Computed example of a mutant assay.
Amino acid sequence: MTTSSALVTFTGVQKTYDGNTLVVRDLNLEIQKGEFLSLLGPSGSGKTTTLMMLAGFESPTSGEIALNGVPITRTPPHKRNFGMVFQNYALFPHMTVADNIAYPLTVRKLDKNEIDTKVKRALDMVQMGHMGQRYPSQMSGGQQQRVALARALVFDPQLVLMDEPLGALDKQLREHMQIELKALHRSLGVTFVYVTHDQSEALTMSDRVAVFNEGVIQQIDQVDRLYETPANRFVAGFVGDNSVLDARVIHNNGDTCEVQLADGTHLHGVNVNHAQVGDTVQCSVRPERIAVVDAGHSAGNRVAATISDVIYFGDHLRLRCQVPEQPEMSVKVPLQHLGHMQAGQTVHLHLPPTHLRVYR
């Protein structure tokens, strides 16, 4: 038994399919009751395998999964009482919407009156109260996804697992459903575990995000901290846009350091991974944290760059800038710069030391 207050605990969980490659390696994870946790990462990072082990469709090669402190590693899926929503909806085409939603209750042998009451409540929950007698083929993708969600929630599960559930929807509908899902989670207080490779989706909806790469959680954090203070190069590059400069450390001040670029420019930044003098490092800064300043601007931490392109994004401009012997930098600037910036122009960029993060 564990003394943890977590709803779900993964302890030392590993998974291999071939006996050689670990798809998930030494996973230790606590999922808190009532939270919206997203598992985020590229294809093959282990996030879906983790979800499938939690659902019971895959078994860990080693380690233990516990629910409320009780091991469930060998409990079959249908006895875990978790709601599941997949990308392909998995609705029964020959059943009405109401019968699809009622299916988990029928399997649990509830009486008809109770089933009708719960189905009505679930339909209302996803704003489809008037569509119970339709068939899946008569509905749009977004409506089918709501039916799948209602079916996952109808039997009051303590945990709802979702695997890329909005992946098949168009951008506008997907963004609308993200907001609805977040509101639904807030009103129900059920624990949601959500797999996605879409970083903006994870940031929009979650309380916390676990970033996976190569079978390991690289960082698990609240969304603002994940974005503002990435723990390593991978998280910085995978979550959100990033401008990167290659440099060498010339002074180490513990939590901060001074670096030198190839053209001799000196910059100060946050020494995230305790880089030492002489180390080759990447300096990372969010495009919206970079400011275009006058040539005579007194503050340090400036680089001179040449604009290679100005892109209009509607609510801001994106400058693509070239610094000598560096990867291309992206800079977000307000619309008042429209018409004042053009390709070929030299600009001076201020990189605030508190937002310039230095990674080994």
Rank of each mutant, 00 (worst) to 15 (best):
M52H: 04
M53L: 15
L54A: 13
L54S: 04
L54W: 08
L54D: 05
A55R: 02
A55Y: 00
A55T: 01
G56K: 12
G56P: 05
F57M: 04
E58Y: 09
E58I: 07
E58W: 11
E58G: 12
S59H: 14
P60F: 13
P60N: 07
T61A: 12
S62F: 00
S62Y: 00
G63P: 00
G63C: 05
E64D: 08
A66N: 02
A66G: 02
N68P: 01
N68G: 14
P71R: 15
P71N: 15
P71T: 14
I72Q: 03
I72P: 00
T73E: 00
T73H: 04
R74S: 10
T75E: 13
T75M: 14
P76G: 13
P77A: 12
H78I: 05
K79I: 07
R80F: 03
N81Q: 12
N81G: 08
G83A: 09
G83Q: 06
M84I: 09
M84H: 05
Q87C: 07
N88A: 07
N88V: 02
N88M: 03
N88F: 04
Y89T: 01
A90P: 01
L91D: 10
L91A: 13
F92H: 00
F92E: 01
F92Q: 03
P93F: 14
P93N: 11
P93T: 12
H94Y: 12
H94N: 15
M95R: 14
M95I: 02
T96Y: 05
T96M: 14
T96I: 07
A98Y: 02
A98E: 10
A98L: 06
D99E: 14
D99F: 01
N100Y: 07
A102I: 04
Y103P: 01
Y103N: 07
Y103S: 10
L105R: 08
L105T: 06
L105Y: 02
